[in-house]
Amino acid sequence: MEQRAHFHKKLEELKMQVLRMAALSEKAVYNSIKSYLEYNSDLAEDVIMGDIEINDLENAIDRFNLELLALDQPMAKDLRSIVGAMRITMNLERLGDEAVNLAHRALFLSTRPPLPYNQKMEQLTETSKKMLASALKSFVEEDVKLAEQVCAMDNEADELSLKILKQYINDMVTESRIVERGVHAIMAARHLERVGDLATNVAETVIFIVEGENVKHRCRG
């Protein structure tokens, strides 16, 4: 017989709230990437304005988590789900911040002539979007295998970001007029790499929730 039906309903409600926040953060990241690639300043501003909602949701989820810990004294997987929800929302909030950072780069670049085409940059946007999408899917479905795949992709993002840095440095050496734009582009690559890092944190937390294994700082190759 289910003894703690009421509490388990609240846990489901918690997961729904985290998923709502995840949807907002994911949308912010997607839109910031789109605004960057398409020099779309309107979209970049939307991302920047939208961050308030993500921050508010984080606060609401934090309060809910504290309440569950204090009133229901959860144990085992229930406890890990709540601690995990705290970690995930913290990373979702930072994902929102990275989206805002990227949107600022997009705003700046939208007022300047385009930079030389950089294929690696497009690749990095794809990689970080995929890492984030997979990390969130692994959370929804409690899919440890998928979470592990996200961790494994982290290297790829790091390497791409390094190659982008080198390429823009080369471009800047040959063409000094693009230095200012180039620096912004390098920062943008850094924000995208951070998106990959934060997605990896989410994936590690999924493994923690499901298996109780703390893989923090371990699962990256």
Partner: peptide, 19 residues
């Protein structure tokens, strides 16, 4: 036991899923 029980029955019992 209370953070990471190994057995499914233990897990279900201490999280109040049966009893």
């Amino acid at each position: 036991m209370f953070t990471q029980p190994k057995n499914k029955q233990t897990e279900d019992y201490i999280t109040g899923r049966f009893g």
